[in-house]
């Protein structure tokens, strides 16, 4: 067994790489210009493994790249046709699970879920749409929480805290009723800066900063011309 910090040898898609043991597979791949699609993962924040988009195979077994540390002798495959279809099916499931009306969404063009659908060339979901009845909570002075679009990635819960380390957001309810709520009391004191950060950290349009929508014209938004992951892939060519 390799200890954390020692250098190990692993193979990603048939190419050999050296990496520090204990680093997550996703980070090692990124540093070497291999893009593994992620959705719930944020660089610099402790990984969650919630969305399973980053599923890869290690020695033939499926694992999440964001939570699995590299180890000596790992044979990692990131892009087999089976994995591609699995990832696409997860995105398709998310599309039918909530109410993702892209044409009417403030986040359209900057949305990571949508960007993954573009990258995977999703023309239609293979699953039946559920059209759940969900609410929109606009009580917070700075943020609108749209439950129709939330994919429960916990990015806001993990990344957005106040000075004392308290989270503005939290899970409530259980099972299929689980949702991310804004702390009503703490949320009253949310600054413009933190509200903007919350909107940016949300991969979909579930957190929208008030009076901010549709500022960037179509054609100039983040994923209008550049596929998600292109920055990683162009890094090491």
């Amino acid at each position: 067994m390799s200890t954390n910090g020692s250098v190990i040898r692993c193979s990603i898609d048939g190419k050999e790489y050296l990496a520090k043991a204990g680093k997550y597979i996703n980070d090692v791949a990124r540093e070497n210009g291999v893009y593994i699609p992620t959705l719930c993962n944020v660089i610099g924040i402790h990984p969650q493994g919630a969305c399973r988009i980053c599923t890869i195979t290690v020695n033939g077994r499926m694992m999440t790249a964001c939570t699995t540390p590299v180890a000596e002798g790992m044979d990692i495959k990131t892009n087999t046709s089976e994995l591609q279809d699995l990832r696409k099916s997860i995105v398709e499931l998310m599309y039918v699970e909530g109410n993702h009306f892209c044409p009417a969404c403030e986040k359209s063009g900057n949305c990571e879920l949508q960007a993954l659908a573009y990258r995977f060339q999703m023309m239609v979901s293979r699953f039946p749409y559920t059209f759940p009845k969900r609410k929109i909570d606009a009580r917070n002075p700075k943020l609108v929480k749209n439950y129709n679009r939330c994919i429960l990635c916990k990015r806001c819960i993990r990344a957005i805290k106040d000075e004392q380390g308290r989270s503005y957001f939290a899970f409530r309810k259980r099972g299929h009723k689980v949702e991310v709520g804004i702390d009503v009391d703490l949320g009253k004191f949310i600054s413009d800066e933190v509200a903007q950060k919350a909107m940016d950290i949300c991969p979909v349009g579930a957190l929208i900063k008030k009076e901010q929508a549709f500022r960037i014209p179509i054609g100039k938004r983040k994923y209008d011309k550049t596929p998600i992951g292109a920055d990683v892939e162009s890094h090491h060519v």
């Binding site: 892209c102 044409p103 969404c105 359209s108 063009g109 949508q114 659908a117 573009y118 060339q121 999703m122 023309m123 179509i218 209008d224 011309k225 596929p227």
Partner: peptide, 10 residues
């Protein structure tokens, strides 16, 4: 041919 720019949902 499906270039990136043509598949959009909005």
């Amino acid at each position: 041919k499906l270039p990136y720019e043509v598949i959009k949902f909005d």
